[in-house]
Amino acid sequence: MAPKTDFPPVRACLFDMDGLLLDTEDIYSQCINAILARYGRPKMPWSIKAKLQGRPMIESNKIFMAWSQLPIPLEQFQKENADLQVENFPHAKALAGVEELLQSLGRTRYWEEVAKTDKAPEKPAGHRVHIALATSSQTVNFHLKTQNQGELFSVFEAPRRVLGDDPRIAPGRGKPLPDIYTLALKTINETLAPGEAPVTPEECLVFEDSVPGVEAGRRAGMRVVWCPHPELKVEYAGREPEVLAGKTGEAGEAGDATPPGEIEDGWSEYLPTLESFPYAHYGIVVPPTEVDNEPFMKATAA
């Protein structure tokens, strides 16, 4: 298949959180390995961790308990794990490039604001890029992880945050199924300025670190950037084209109604880091930092 190249400019960026925006994956491993050590079990390998990433808590716990064979019931494991997470999650830091990326995307609202003033050019150089959060983390853990990252996450407007326990996502319909990203796009379209055309899936760019998350984005009919943990990249060495197409089989029969992509179809790309993000490649024009001093920009940021 010849890769598609004639994409429309990206108008919406949809973000996973764990391991993509925040450096939480090593914290997850630290907590779980501490529990495994208590009961004489070996450390969790990345071959297992890869299956847990991005999935709803109920499903990931089921996979983990089947592998670990811990001599304790699930409820006890959950309590011990939660206690360790309460202690460690507040220390989660933003990953490299994240702050600059979110700030730059936030600055694109300049194109929307300038169009309302007498400074509006006949044809603006760029357009606003809307953003939304789509994380499998449930509300309690989301607040734990972000309690010291308020400024970073302030760019995600409350109506555009979709969490793992969102009642609008049916049980069993978490990643790698597309529902969370379809819903994230819906939250954007429901909050657009009057007269702005709805954003289409093809105009969306999903940012993911997990393999199930990539598959969810592809099944939602969206473009995807895969930025995995280095250890996860090693785990899938040689299978990168399958990952980028969403064809690793994570969804099983449940995904039959929403097919993934095709190998090397041009819809997905791997990036080792979010630093120096290639905005122009996705049709995104970021205004210079000087525009933050415009009166109408100060007003919208207040």
Rank of each mutant, 00 (worst) to 15 (best):
A2T: 14
T5K: 14
F7Y: 04
P9Q: 06
F15N: 01
L22Y: 02
L22V: 11
D23Q: 13
D26V: 14
Y28F: 07
Y28G: 04
L36I: 11
L36K: 05
A37R: 13
R38P: 05
Y39W: 12
W46L: 03
L52R: 01
Q53V: 09
N61L: 04
K62G: 15
M65W: 01
W67L: 02
S68K: 07
E75G: 06
Q76Y: 10
K79D: 14
V86P: 08
F89I: 14
P90N: 04
K93A: 15
A96P: 12
A96I: 12
A96N: 13
E100D: 14
S104N: 15
S104Y: 07
L105G: 00
R107C: 07
R107N: 01
T108P: 00
R109Q: 05
Y110S: 00
E113K: 13
E113V: 02
E113Q: 12
V114E: 02
K116Y: 06
A120D: 10
P124R: 01
H130A: 01
I131T: 15
T135N: 06
S136L: 11
S137F: 03
L144F: 02
Q147W: 01
N148C: 12
G150W: 04
F153S: 07
V155A: 06
F156Y: 00
E157A: 14
R161P: 11
K175Y: 10
P176A: 09
L177S: 01
L177G: 04
I180W: 04
I180A: 02
L183A: 05
L183H: 09
T191S: 11
P201F: 03
V206E: 04
V206T: 09
E208G: 13
P212M: 08
R218W: 04
R219M: 08
R223H: 07
P228K: 00
H229F: 09
E231Y: 08
L232W: 01
A237W: 10
E240W: 03
P241N: 06
P241A: 00
E242L: 12
V243C: 09
G246V: 01
G252H: 11
G252W: 09
G255E: 03
E262I: 05
I263R: 04
E264D: 15
G266D: 05
G266K: 04
E269W: 12
T273L: 06
S276H: 15
S276N: 15
A280T: 14
H281P: 10
P287E: 06
D292G: 09
N293Y: 08
M297S: 05
K298Y: 12
T300F: 09
